[in-house]
Design a protein around this nucleic acid. Structure first.
Lengths: 198, 198, 198, 198
DNA sequence: GATGAATGAGGGTTCATTCAT
DNA sequence: TATGAATGAACCCTCATTCAT
């Protein structure tokens, strides 16, 4: 096992601190002072390891995206039926690693800035494409192309909506409940769709 | 009809500018410079009319909340069946006044700051209570108390999720489509629920 | 008795408010907002009656100086012996009208700004000359010219020192005590001076 | 001898500049712009070293108070007779370090703000207690308790009065003269007091 | 006679960044 | 590798002033 130099360690620490501070500051711009204080380091360290704040944020977003795509890739292969595939996708979206308030806040923060930050936009675009494509591929056997589009939008909307609640709602809806509700809604719609066809 | 003095007019203008700038700055803190420039006025004017930035933002949130509650109140009375009531609630949430990118962004911005801003929290709390109560009241005839809770959460999640897309997604999903998808999902789930019971 | 128009009345009110606010703000620059609020008027009124803040302050200082000179002039004529004259001067300095915290604060405020405000300097100069001359005239029969100078400085210093305490010291030393202590110190010094001569 | 890093040096420079600027601005609120310009540094440096203007001012006052208490402590031990002790106290008050226009202006400025600034109040209170106690201790052998109080007030008043002149009077009364006058006044009063008793 | 509308200058503070060590 | 020194831009806010009414 390769021993990490102090560099990569510090980078990880700073990225973790960034995510934490984004959440704590309620979608306000996280300050380097807060981030480095959280990491127990001086402010200048950011310049040392990431050159600019923007670069630190990009790395943070890339890290988030990487973990998410990872969750996704792991399970999708094993599913057989369309319904199974959809459920696996839903499970990935509600994976514990993706549903902590800190992670959700960070996702929202980056997502909100996509329109004014090209680097963020590119990362987000890649992830979004990936997810939407997987959903569509799973749905294709079940319905017409136009319906697939709508259906995918609906599923995404439900999951985004629950994420919002995970980030901000003090009632702390359990992830499992959210996951179940999502699956139920999707299953109901699919079964109804199929009976409509028949 | 009472003629508005220049005061109320300027206040309206500044509130409108605030909403616009919140959207444009992608959930960054809107600056008074940007807001007043948008309104074609000097920065000092905010102190003149609102005393502080915080007060301006509170007024802005109150305005948003008022309009939303208004949409809501108008239509709810006319609905007869539970399904009708749910659909009326969904219509209110997807009313054109609530689904422009500017308005959605503003809602998200205020919502995100609820945990760190007591004045915002109070306004949000009032609105949230109102909406959740209406949904629950509509669902009560249809299902058990525990299921009502879950169902309400699901409906809210869908709508929140679509709102997120309205705010940020460049694909500009039509509001009508979102509304229809939501209603379909809800209707499917209800009809399935009822056949499960039977 | 001539009836005052509203103009002179407002001017008096604003001058009184200015003195009060100078004291309350602890030698900070009094703001027009505070002054006019105290007078129950709008800010713009100052421009209306005094044109500028500087002019208002000058008028205020002139008013203070006028009252002081008045106290002074009233009593000086009646004194016969040098000691009597000195005591009359001390009494004038400790006259009730001159020893309220508000008035003392105002004096200090203007006095402090003499070096950077020519208009204030001129007013102060006139008053100072007047007082010093009276003290010297009273002392001349008692001692040599050089000693007169020193003695006058000492008397002024005592009185200024007590004024400082009136303005700021929470112990609220009674004016009568201050007056008596001053007179005692002066009388002791004079009697010792005379026994030294003899 | 510990070598000072640049930090302590800058802090000293900024404190010195603060005192100078308070004097120059004639008891107006000193601005950070003026202070840092005087120190040849940028405005932001204050945040770097003192965090806030208030903190800078507190440090400045603490510095003034420390030097004064130092003057005081040095000499008090060596005095034997009550009169000697009083004179030593007077010398300390008129020590060159305490009688420059800059230092006196600063004292007055802080003193004036004691009623509205708790941090200043605490510092002032400590110093004031110290001085008054020393004076009283010196006078106790000479007179009754009630007289001690009055006498101490009188001595303080004289010194405060002279200080005022040092700060603002362009005639620039020599410190030595002020010191001598004060001692003479005190000595006269004491000797007369004693002959009254006898 | 009196006020509200509106502004521009200047205040303290925050913050990301650069640089020398 | 890591930090403190230092700055300039931008922020919100205060304030005296001008102007129209």
């Amino acid at each position: 096992m390769p021993k990490l130099g102090v560099g990569p360690i510090r980078r990880k620490e700073l990225i973790a601190a960034t995510i934490a501070i984004i959440h704590e500051s309620s979608l306000n711009e996280p300050t380097l002072a807060a981030i480095s204080a959280r990491a127990g380091l001086s402010t200048s360290i950011v310049n040392h390891y990431f050159k600019t704040k923007q670069k630190l944020l990009e790395e943070t977003f890339r890290e988030l995206a990487g973990v998410f795509i990872g969750e996704f890739a792991l399970s999708i292969a094993s599913a057989k039926t369309p319904i199974d595939k959809i459920n696996v996708i839903i499970d990935a979206n509600f994976a514990p690693s993706q549903c902590t308030p800190e992670v959700v806040s960070a996702w929202l923060w980056f997502w909100a800035r996509v329109p004014i930050n090209d680097a963020f936009a590119e990362i987000e675009h890649t992830v979004d494409n990936h997810v939407v494509n997987e959903i569509k591929r799973a749905l294709q056997p079940l319905m017409s192309e136009g319906d697939v589009e709508d259906f995918a939008e609906g599923i995404m909307a439900i999951m985004y909506g629950f994420w919002l609640r995970f980030a901000f709602d003090p009632k702390k809806l359990p992830v499992e409940t959210a996951c179940r509700i999502t699956k139920d809604l999707v299953a109901s719609r699919i079964s109804e769709y199929q009976s409509d066809i028949a």
